[in-house]
């Protein structure tokens, strides 16, 4: 029986420059922030990040890790606009592929299902239709649809409330988000968890099974200041402090020293 426990540093050691990484959660909710912090503090570079974005994206923008971002939005929820992401975009520092939220979902599904693309009508007529995105004509009805390319991931990072050492894992909040789809879209999935030990009373919450998982990191508080209800809500004060560092280099240095263990 395999024991997949590892540390954040061991996860980072298995990642490489230029990889495409998917990050689970949604906005500023149940993000695998201890893993994101470890990447932010590492030497990794030129990453393509695929995320329903929150502070994971902002932090990796601020620390210069992102070459390309595939996204539908980046938001801190209670703070509508993510200031570090905005700063990086307005400085022209990152390349983007902007997708509708549902197109993004179809791309993840395609990757998990071994399909080169999946069709959708979402996106037609809008600015997400850059030349890299193609449309098809339905052979039955003649209707035009978008062929959303598979969002294949080299690795996925997700945070779950409970897990065992083999990689079976549960969410205990009300929304699974798309963490299972991120896992199935990825060659390797690293999951952090609040606690090792499954909750037997929640049979319908087994979102992740061990076939999906390469490594398990026990990380109490691992979602950091993002929402991880019912274990803990978003730390709004800390999130406000994080957001305020976008306009104050000294505040950023203090924040990075305290939370990233680095003086970037």
């Amino acid at each position: 029986m395999s024991d997949k426990r590892m540390t954040e540093a061991q996860v980072v050691a298995q990642l490489q420059d230029g990889m495409t990484l998917g990050i689970g959660g949604w906005g500023s909710r149940r993000k695998p922030m201890s893993l994101v912090r470890a990447i932010a503090a590492s030497d990794l570079k030129d990453l393509t990040i695929v995320s329903y974005g929150g502070p994971d994206v902002g932090l990796l923008c601020k620390t210069g890790k992102i070459k390309r971002l595939i996204f539908a939005f980046v938001s801190l929820d209670s703070i509508a606009l993510e200031p570090h992401f905005r700063a990086a975009r307005q400085a022209g520092e990152i390349e983007i592929t902007e997708l509708d939220e549902g197109m993004f979902l179809q791309g993840l599904r395609a990757a998990g299902w071994g399909m080169p693309f999946l069709p959708t009508r979402a996106g037609l007529g809008s600015s997400v239709m850059t030349p890299e995105l193609k449309t098809l004509i339905c052979p039955y009805t003649g209707q035009e649809v978008v062929a959303v390319p598979a969002l294949k991931l080299d690795a996925a990072l997700i945070h779950m409330h409970r897990a065992d050492i083999r990689g079976n894992a549960q969410y205990l909040n009300d929304d699974p988000y798309f963490d299972d789809l991120f896992a199935m879209a990825a060659d390797r999935t690293y999951l952090s968890t609040e606690r090792i030990g499954l909750d037997d009373t929640c049979s319908h919450r087994y979102l992740i099974n061990r076939m999906m998982v390469t490594g398990v990191v026990e990380a109490p508080g691992g979602a950091w200041f993002t929402d991880c209800s019912p274990d803990y809500p978003r730390d709004e004060a800390l999130q406000r402090r994080y957001a305020a560092t976008a306009k104050d280099p000294d505040a950023w240095r203090a924040f990075a020293a305290e939370f990233l263990g680095a003086s970037t």
Binding site: G53, F71, A72, F73, V74, S75, A80, L81, E82, F85, R86, R89, Q90, A91, G92, E95, I96, E98, L99, D100, E101, G102, M103, T120, R121, A122, G123, L124, G125, S126, S127, V128
Partner: peptide
């Protein structure tokens, strides 16, 4: 609701298109 100015380097980055393309078409 996405951004103001050029796509590669917007003058003002907003939150992104979110689900607006899919909402309006469906």
């Amino acid at each position: 609701i996405s951004a103001l100015g050029p796509a590669h380097k917007p003058k003002v980055q907003l939150r992104g298109v979110r689900g607006a393309p899919g909402n309006t078409i469906h």
